[in-house]
Design a protein around this nucleic acid. Structure first.
Lengths: 332, 332
DNA sequence: ACCACACCTTAAAGCGCTTTAAAAGCGCCG
DNA sequence: CGGCGCTTTTAAAGCGCTTTAAGGTGTGGT
């Protein structure tokens, strides 16, 4: 098995120095047309691929953005996709560090740092504000989807309270009076969404008092929520997220209820599954494209020195009305 | 901002050479107890973290396994989790390279090679056999979930035909005569599963002729399958995978059918969603744990020189009977 | 005492690439 | 025709770590 070709081999074949070859291959100015041609040609014919480790080591800047994510979360997958594209467009590379049962956020971040990532994009980070702040002191850190106040940490998030408010208004507009909110796992995100719910309920004339239920962010939590709902069934439910809404939906239907005739259901995230014809869930979109774009932009701005005060990008969520919401029908 | 501490700093603080420090930090034999203590201590107090790029570059072996995966596929997520654990146990590191809209398998693999991954674990690779074979000539390559014959490529897969056979037998055992198979996206996997279905149907006395339907691997495909099924409703359906089964289920129920009373449904993958109380899908498990284990083992065996003939590990899938299958009831 | 031998420790040579500072080439003007 | 300013090219010094071969130190045997 022949050894992997090195830059030196390319240079030798093109009869130039490795310096020239390096410059050409990275499209930097300097080398003339003749040299360019020769190098590119040589590289192509011997099938040269630069060694990422070596180039990372030698380079001052790594232009690497690290992303921590929960691989089993479809919304994260969607964000990652957009982040890749946005980073690409700005000449940055992305390295992903998945969170798993055996690999918590701390370890995931560490391995990103080991690779010299200049910026960290944390999807829905669950570490404490203090830990985040500490990280932010040495790295460009962008927390996505979570509110944090720390001079070194940028935040990109959707206005979750507004989003839930939109859902409440939509339901109230349809004529619903009793709207229940099924919470997510306790945490900053749940708190914010609950707030949006409570405020919107208080603001609207004629709706019943706010009523929230402990829930969670998986389908199973939604199922449990639906079960607890039965005691006093409202005409509409807003779930913490789509997965939770799915569980709710499924359980309600199994109990013989018709959605949206008997109960309206609203989710949150506009995940791919919500868009399916048969699920067709009314939900709140967090605009993953804009989020990713903003997050990458924030990191890059920090790194290229244009900014040192923390950014707090708040995106306006928007309601996606689909088939799980309708005017309430009188129940006899 | 103080510069990141280097090995040299640790060594200086511990009053030993960088060679000793390196040895200690990687737990290699050589240094005595006193030196060990001093180095570990120094590293801890200055918060040293080795630079992955530098160490990769200097090391002969990288002990890196690259994984390509579709982040939006829950089964892949599950496999990744197990792969991480298995690799960890053998002292290998894992780097994941996600496939996205803008990043096909070729690019994903390239970036893994750029990082000097010694082994590639490809989850459900879609590249041609020739491309795989070429890759296999220079790297340890393990194709997971797909059959390939090439001297350089190891294969770890479940016996999909057997799995579908189990499903057919289960249904036949319950008394079903008409069992339809909804296919996945055309490809080697669909072919194999269809084969298993056709053979099992042919083998069992008393069942009707095999009947397959074009489908796909998403929920939407399942929905379409259900719609086409209505013309001539069988008593049982086997779907290409769980996602497809979900679409089927949902659509059938919306049409007022009761599962499993009117129709039994079987999925494939035993994905987390199938396990949910409200979905409770009878399905075929591919044993992700065993798959990951086998895949990592195969890669490691190749790398550590114990083997050069291709491995073809075929795992026996097993049926997970849940609530979507039951004996057929007479329809009047 | 002296030497052989094990055991620790270290200096130094890379790993493959980037980058900087200096050399070389090259037209052009006076 | 020498000298000047310009662009193109290159030698060489790292980036932070690993590894190897050589050096040091202490033990026990004779």
């Amino acid at each position: 098995m022949p050894p992997r070709p090195r830059l030196e081999d390319v240079a030798a074949r093109a009869r130039v120095s490795t310096a020239t070859a390096s410059l050409v291959l990275r499209g930097k100015p300097g080398p003339g047309a003749a040299a360019r041609e020769a190098v590119l040609d040589a590289a192509r014919t011997i099938g040269y691929r630069p060694d990422a480790a070596a180039s990372l080591l030698a380079r001052r800047r790594t232009q690497l953005l690290g992303v921590t994510m929960d691989v089993s979360n479809p919304f994260h997958a969607e964000l990652l996709e957009e982040i890749q594209a946005a980073a690409d467009a700005r000449g940055y590379d992305v390295v992903v560090s998945p969170l798993t049962r055996t690999r918590d956020e701390r370890r995931a971040v560490e391995s990103l740092l080991d690779f010299r990532c200049e910026g960290l994009l944390l999807l829905g980070p669950s570490m404490t504000a203090a830990e985040l702040a500490e990280l932010g002191e040495r790295q460009a850190v962008v927390a996505i989807g979570r509110r944090v106040t720390s001079p070194g940490v940028d935040v990109v998030r959707a206005a979750d309270d507004v989003g839930v408010g939109l859902a409440v208004e939509h339901l109230a507009g349809l004529g619903h009076r009793q709207v229940v909110f099924v919470e997510g796992r306790p945490g900053p995100i749940t708190t914010l969404r609950r707030q949006g719910y409570v405020r919107a309920m208080g603001r609207l004339p004629g709706v019943a008092a706010a009523r929230t239920l402990a829930g969670g962010d998986t389908e199973a939590d939604g199922v449990r929520g639906a079960e607890r709902l039965r005691a006093e069934l409202p005409t509409a439910v807003i779930a913490f997220n789509d997965r939770c809404a799915l569980g709710l939906l499924d359980r309600l239907r199994r109990d013989g209820l018709d959605v949206p005739r008997d109960v309206s259901v609203v989710g949150y995230d506009d995940s791919p599954v919500a868009r399916l014809a048969t699920i067709d869930l009314t939900t709140v979109s967090q605009a993953p494209h804009a989020m990713a774009e903003a997050a990458v932009a924030a990191a890059v701005e920090r790194l290229e020195g244009h900014r040192s005060e923390p950014a707090d990008v708040v995106l306006e969520p928007h309601l996606v009305v689909r088939g799980t919401t309708a005017p309430p029908t009188d129940r006899t």
